[in-house]
Computed example of a mutant assay.
Amino acid sequence: MTGTPFSVTTRTTGAGAVVTVLGELDVATAPRLRAGIEALTLAAGQRLVVDLAGVTFCDSSGISALIAARNVAEAAGAGVALAAVPGRLSRTFGLIGLGDFFPTYPSAEAALRG
């Protein structure tokens, strides 16, 4: 498959970190997302927001990386939220029983305000 080149970028705000994912989140790219999230310094009370607006595909490895992100945030005493979840991925979350596992917001800014 060819599509949007994969990238993970991070910006830090007073409320926490926003990790923006672009491209296909799959077995080949999920380790890059995990590494980026594990490198973050989160403080108790902050929020980790994963912005998925640019995700064009997500397989089980990508979903596993998102669950790992939640675990990293919780270990730091921080919250986690997903922003701009594509409809197909939102439907997949519902089908596999993760529909309520992540708080979701229409944008990263809304998620930071939480």
Rank of each mutant, 00 (worst) to 15 (best):
P5R: 01
G79L: 09
A69R: 05
R88P: 01
S60P: 11
V49C: 00
G54D: 02
T56S: 15
A44T: 15
A81S: 09
P5F: 03
M1A: 09
T56I: 10
G62K: 04
Y105A: 15
A110G: 02
G87A: 12
A30R: 05
L22E: 12
A76C: 13
E109W: 08
V18S: 04
G45D: 04
D100N: 10
T20N: 03
A35Q: 15
E38W: 06
L25H: 04
L42N: 07
V55L: 11
A111Y: 04
V72L: 03
Q46F: 00
L112T: 03
S61H: 05
L22D: 12
R34T: 15
I67M: 14
S7H: 05
D100W: 02
M1T: 08
N71G: 03
G45Q: 07
G87R: 12
Q46S: 09
G54T: 01
S60H: 10
F6H: 01
A75E: 14
A15K: 13
T92D: 09
G23E: 03
L22W: 01
P31R: 12
R34S: 12
R47H: 02
T20W: 09
G77P: 06
A30K: 04
A15I: 00
G14F: 04
I63N: 10
G23M: 02
A76H: 12
A83M: 06
A75K: 14
T104G: 00
G77K: 11
I37L: 13
V19K: 02
V49F: 02
A53K: 07
A43H: 14
C58K: 05
L98H: 03
G87M: 03
G16D: 03
V8S: 02
A78Q: 11
I67T: 07
A69C: 14
I37H: 06
A65W: 09
G114D: 11
G36E: 13
Y105I: 00
G23S: 05
I63K: 09
A39K: 13
L33N: 07
L98M: 13
A81R: 06
G97P: 08
R47T: 08
G114C: 02
M1F: 08
A73F: 14
A81G: 14
T10D: 02
G87D: 14
A83S: 07
F57V: 01
I37E: 04
G23K: 00
A35E: 15
L52K: 00
E24T: 02
E24V: 00
L95R: 14
G62H: 08
P86A: 11
S64L: 11
A73M: 13
G14H: 06
A30H: 07
L98G: 04
Y105W: 09
A76L: 10
T29N: 10
E38N: 13
A53S: 12
E38C: 09
G23P: 01
F93L: 14
I37T: 14
A108V: 05
F93P: 05
G62Y: 03
L98D: 05
L22M: 06
